[in-house]
């Protein structure tokens, strides 16, 4: 009897043991907090690894929070299908049939974190399209993008909200069995975690969120651009 379809992919991302936790100020989070401070009972979608701190932060203020780790979900072997040449590739239709399945205009806030930088190329646009549809008009999405100066080995972090504009970051590592995805997928080997897939410039980011009503950039000191978009 098999109860958990594709559950193997759900246990692959873990915080690196013994790695110190870093804290950073986030202007994007600060603005988001100021905007939503007076709101009651709003609905948040957190797309990072399950974070007890984030759950505590939002439920403690009476809000609902949904947790869905899309990056880890994208390593699930069940999401791959063979292309014309027989090589296994991520199937965005299959991925969106299993993930981000919510009613339209359901969320007030989406915490996207650094997902677009590390997500497989084939999933980025379909995922952003789905995020647009599940975000309420006027709702906000927070995303982080590395600048070119960050370099190709920029580590992937999970983000924990510990204050109105303060985040704690812990590096994510993959367990060995998940580092390459299914055999013969042609995906780049990853040393010990998710690999930065690309660097978006401002124009790419504006194109990515072209269907949204507005976009605001915040340049941080750690080679990261924070982006707050409003549907």
């Amino acid at each position: 009897m098999k109860f958990f379809r594709g559950s193997s992919g759900m246990e692959t991302a873990v915080p690196a043991p013994g790695v110190p936790k870093l804290t950073r100020r986030s202007s994007g989070l600060g603005e988001l907090t100021r905007t939503w401070d007076a709101a009651e009972n709003f609905c948040v979608l957190d797309l990072g690894s399950t974070s007890p701190a984030n759950i505590r932060h939002f439920t403690g203020r009476g809000h609902k929070i949904y947790s869905e780790d899309l990056l880890t979900a994208s390593t699930d072997p069940a999401m791959f299908t063979p292309d014309e040449s027989g090589a296994l590739v991520l199937d965005s239709r299959k991925f969106l049939a299993d993930n981000l399945v919510y009613p339209a205009a359901h969320f007030d806030v989406i915490l996207c974190w650094n997902l677009p930088d590390y997500l497989d190329e084939s999933l980025v646009k379909p995922v952003v399209g789905r995020l647009w549809s599940v975000l309420k008009p006027g709702g906000m999405l927070l995303a982080f993008f590395h600048t070119r100066d960050a370099g190709p080995d920029a580590p992937c972090y999970r983000f924990h909200v510990i204050g109105a504009d303060t985040l704690e970051m812990t590096r994510i590592v993959l367990r060995p069995e998940a580092r390459r995805g299914p055999a013969s997928t042609g995906r780049s080997p990853v040393a010990d975690g998710f690999q930065l897939q690309r660097v978006f410039n401002n124009r790419h980011i504006e194109n990515l969120f072209r269907d949204f009503a507005s976009i605001k950039f915040f340049l941080a000191r750690d080679n990261v651009r924070e982006v707050l978009v409003v549907r």
Binding site: P15, P52, I55, K64, Y66, S67
Partner: peptide
């Protein structure tokens, strides 16, 4: 929720 636990879904307290 302990560190390392995995959750996909809504939490309503």
């Amino acid at each position: 929720i302990e560190e390392g636990a995995f959750l996909k879904g809504k939490i309503d307290v």
